[in-house]
Nucleic acid binder design. Structure first.
Lengths: 233, 233
DNA sequence: CTCATTATTATGTATAGACATATAAACAAT
DNA sequence: ATTGTTTATATGTCTATACATAATAATGAG
């Protein structure tokens, strides 16, 4: 097969993908080395390298020096999970957005937050509680902790007109984060805030973001019944 | 700044990252072009290209021909969401795994599935209902539809000893998929299967996978109370 | 002034060649 | 048998150069 039609890295990638999906190269298989593929495809080794590297990045190939390139046994797919500005999410669905701050105070956080954010025992955090509404109906309850030692800019913000969610997304870059998804049954407290029945199933996101080794913020978002989060893999 | 210490693409990437995080280059800013950076860093343009391309892939830079390279205003982070073999997930937590097939039949699916899987109106699907258990307690309820026209291999499988989840992950590669996360309140049906209280909040994953333009399978996973899904961004 | 054409420019990509680096496998020494 | 050393090899990366491509900016025709 000395086909001269593989002259760019995308077409090489497509051909490799075809061979993987057609099970010509099965999961776990060692595929020919770059030099051989370059000869077969009639292109430079760098072009093959670009294609295989890209497939390795997306998790379909495992590459190791000297050992060669193998088709991944159980590929892990990447999904894009953005941290949305809730206002835009609601307005994007064609609803009118309303935001309401319930409380704001600087306090010593509970043990759970200290652990999750790896705080010093005497760190005082800004605790914000608020609700985002769509067409007047509660959409999501935001329960947030912000570390003012890491984000000193926060001291000048009142969070009356702009939610902590929006302000943080717009102003504070982060280097990493972790997210936990779960469900809970509404207690009297949540059912009151979200205007739903008690013990109703609610979708929950717990998320912390970090800069360097320090936690910027940790938030629990409890969504009103019916909320769905969608993504592609 | 004619520092000669940027001789590989990672160090160039690190320096660019530093300038972004230190807000020397702010979100929205146009950064110097590749040729200028190459001169500044004392390396080839291709090296700068590799670094910037990588940062663009991870969403921190926006690049357009002629227009140049800008720092992304609202970066979207990528998370790795694998499709786990539930057996391994349970055993990985140190519990003993048990799988139980409740029903298996080939039928014309309901409207919702026809729509979600973009089926022809007369497509008959294999409908599988089963439960995965950890230490004898229900862990997740699996309600799955498989298209035997797309996956003819499925006709030879009984799903008595191996769950459809595990068989599909091990044997059927897919090219894309979509996932929806939500919560529901347990009905009498779910509370019976998952041994939980009626109306308790349950975490739900709806997932479809595709090969080319055709849906391979669509599944609803309803998890027992307390389940959490975790990922990093 | 408007619209189509052309020039300019920044990124995108291909190439050959060279060297770097990790590491499996063969071999040697204990 | 175990440990340490060498060697061969596949991937990783850099370089200089060239051309491709997209898109903005400048230009000119009507």
């Amino acid at each position: 097969m000395s086909d001269l039609s593989f002259r760019n890295w995308q077409s090489v990638q497509d051909e490799v993908l075809r061979r993987i999906n057609s099970r010509l190269w099965k999961p776990g298989d060692l595929i020919p080395n770059e030099a051989e593929l370059a000869t077969e495809f009639g292109c430079a080794r760098a072009t093959v390298n670009r294609a295989l590297q890209n497939l390795a990045d997306s998790g379909l190939l495992d590459r190791r020096r000297k050992a060669g390139t193998r088709v991944t046994l159980h590929p892990i797919r990447k999904a894009t999970l953005d941290i949305p500005v809730i206002r835009r999410e609601i307005e994007g669905k064609g609803h009118t957005y309303l935001y309401s701050l319930i409380s704001s105070q600087t306090v010593i956080p509970p043990q759970g937050i200290i652990g999750r954010m790896q705080l010093k025992p005497d760190d005082r955090l800004l605790h914000l509680v608020c609700v985002h509404m769509a067409d007047g109906k509660p959409y999501v309850f935001e329960n947030r902790w912000i570390n003012p030692r890491v984000v000193p800019e926060v001291s000048g913000v009142r969070f009356i007109d702009q939610s902590p969610n929006e302000w943080l997304v717009e102003n504070i870059p982060f280097s990493s984060g972790d997210i936990t998804f779960s469900a809970l049954s509404a207690t009297k407290f949540e059912s009151g805030i979200l205007a739903c029945k008690e013990s109703e199933g609610l979708f929950v996101i717990d998320r912390s973001t970090w800069r360097g080794g320090e936690a910027i913020t940790s938030v629990r978002l409890i969504f009103a019944p019916g909320y769905q989060m969608h993504t592609d893999i």
